[in-house]
Each structure stands twice: as C-alpha cells, then as structure tokens.
Amino acid sequence: MHIYMYISYFTAMGGASFSQPWRSMPWTNEENLNFIKSYKPQNNDVENLRILLHGPVGAGKSSFINSVESVLLGRVTGRVMTDTISGCSFTKKYKAFKIHKDPESFYPFIFNDTMGFEQRNGMNVEDIKLALMGHVTEGYKPIPGVQLKESDQEYNSCPSLDDRVHALVCVMPADLVSLISDEVVKKMRDVRLAASDMGIPQLAILTKVDEACPEVKNNIKNVYESNYLKEKVDKFSLMLGIPQNCIFLVKNYESELQTNEDINGPILIALRQMIVYGEDFINNL
C-alpha cells in the first residue's frame, strides 16, 4: 500500500517517463535556426508574418517573446516586461514586437502580445477577434467589458493583409492545464472557433514544463519522455480541440543569465512551425 501511494504521488508530480520519447526531437539547432534566419514571406503584399499570442494571465506569453529574442540574439533579453507575482495581467496594451536581425534590419515576423484572459476581467474575446482581422492598432489599451468600436481612434477600418494575423498561438502553463477555469477555457475556445472561421492556423505552447515535471527540471531533454507532460498535452488537446502535433512544450528563459542550446531547441521548433503554418495561410489567401 505504501509503495502504491508513493508511485501514485511520484507519477502525479511528473516523475514517470516513457522508455522512448513520444515525439522525436532533434537536439541540434542549426537547421531550424538557418530556416528562421533565411525566412521571408513569399507573398509580396506581406512584409511581416504576424503571430498573435493569447491565453490566461501568467501563462508566459511575454516571456515567450523574450525567449525567442534571446535565442535569436544569443543572449538573454528582457525587452518585453513581465511580472512574477501579479494576479492580473501585467500586459495592459496590444503590442507588436519585432526582433533585430542585425543593427539595420528585423526578422520578417511580428509577435502581437495581448492582455491575459481572466474569469471576469482581462482581455475581451471580441477584441481578439477584431485583432485577428487586423482591426486593432498597436497601443490599444483594452477595457474589460468594453469592446473596441469602429468609431474609436484605435480601430483600423481598412486593414491590409500585412495587418491581419497569420498564425494564432495559445499559451498555457503546463502545470495549470487541469486547474484552468471553465470561463477562461470558454474564452480561448471562442477565439479558436473565430480563427477557424477565418482559416487562421492555430498552435499552442505549454510553458513552464520544468515547474510541472521534476525530470524535465533536471534535464530539459526529458521533455518529450515525460508521461506527466504527455497527459497534459492530451488533456489540453481535448480541452480546446487543437491537434496534438500543433502543441509544443517549451521552457522560457526566466532564471538563466546565458542562453542554452537545450532550452533553445524546443523554442526554435515551435517558432519554425508558427512560421510554416502562417506562411501556408498567407499563400492560400
């Protein structure tokens, strides 16, 4: 009985692992990094592929943008402001972030950061839907319960193809998949259905995998061997309807002072798929 209780506790804490990875993972980053560095939208009407991040408060949306920038610049950055103790969204405005490729140019993709979803406050679902269509301008400060209107200064009445969102990414902490409220799930599901109607591809990243699983905390290379994290991917897939091959596990840069190739790997794979899916969407329009 005591052994059974120990095994159950160990499994609940993410200790159990598969004998073989449940997803193949290349741990050499050169190919993915070269792909991202050489990427350029094929459609001449699109200067930048636009990736919109959404999800609950504290999911790690801003941290993921910082992590991508850290990987591409080769040093840990913190340009996007984050907060570790607030119970409400630290991001207050609809912001767009570009990453320097060299001193005089940027990578041809943009991340749009949004206020997090909360049960009763946070980002308005209808504002996210408008953002998907390109109607929300940068700097817009959402007011919970108040939808952006056509008469508002921040409303873009004639969005170009470049203004539209080309890939939608839901961000969720791996350790909170089973604890997220029904209200927040409904909001994320509403956004997903709206994006589906527009034909916008959708992906998801589960963050904080090291906090969710001790084996991964010890070694990030165990991320796709963890039974616990596989269960979280399964549950999240059923929760939102996002296929499992569109859900990625990442650890954001948070306590590290230098970049690490093992942390970079999952981030680069997720970013590459965002670009690939977004590029397919642009070319299909």
Rank of each mutant, 00 (worst) to 15 (best):
N156S: 11
D280K: 10
L168G: 03
E225I: 06
R164M: 15
N283Y: 00
K186S: 12
V216I: 12
K186M: 14
Q20N: 11
F236V: 03
G199V: 06
E279H: 00
E150N: 11
H135A: 09
G87H: 06
K95G: 05
I282K: 00
P144R: 13
E30V: 15
T84M: 13
V184F: 04
Y155R: 07
A195W: 06
N48R: 11
R23N: 08
A12K: 09
I85Q: 14
M81V: 11
I143G: 05
D113Q: 00
Y228T: 04
V165E: 09
L168W: 03
Q42F: 07
P41Q: 07
Y94F: 13
F35R: 06
P214M: 08
A167S: 13
V165N: 09
R50H: 15
Y9K: 15
S178G: 11
G116T: 01
A96L: 07
E211Q: 13
P144E: 14
P26R: 14
K93G: 00
L176S: 14
G241Y: 04
R50G: 06
T207L: 02
V146I: 14
L229M: 05
S181Y: 09
Y6M: 09
K149A: 15
H100M: 04
E279A: 01
L238H: 07
H100C: 01
R75A: 13
I128A: 08
L257Y: 06
N112W: 04
K129A: 12
K149W: 10
H135N: 15
L73C: 05
E118R: 04
G116F: 00
V233P: 05
Y140P: 04
P266M: 08
S160C: 10
E150S: 14
H2I: 11
Q42Y: 07
N222Y: 14
Y155K: 06
M188L: 10
E231K: 15
F248C: 05
L33D: 02
N32Q: 13
E256N: 07
K141G: 07
H54G: 05
G87F: 02
L268M: 10
D234G: 07
F236A: 03
S19F: 08
K235M: 12
V169G: 04
C158A: 13
G58T: 02
K230Q: 13
R23D: 08
L49T: 02
I36G: 00
G265A: 13
H166W: 09
S89C: 03
F236Y: 14
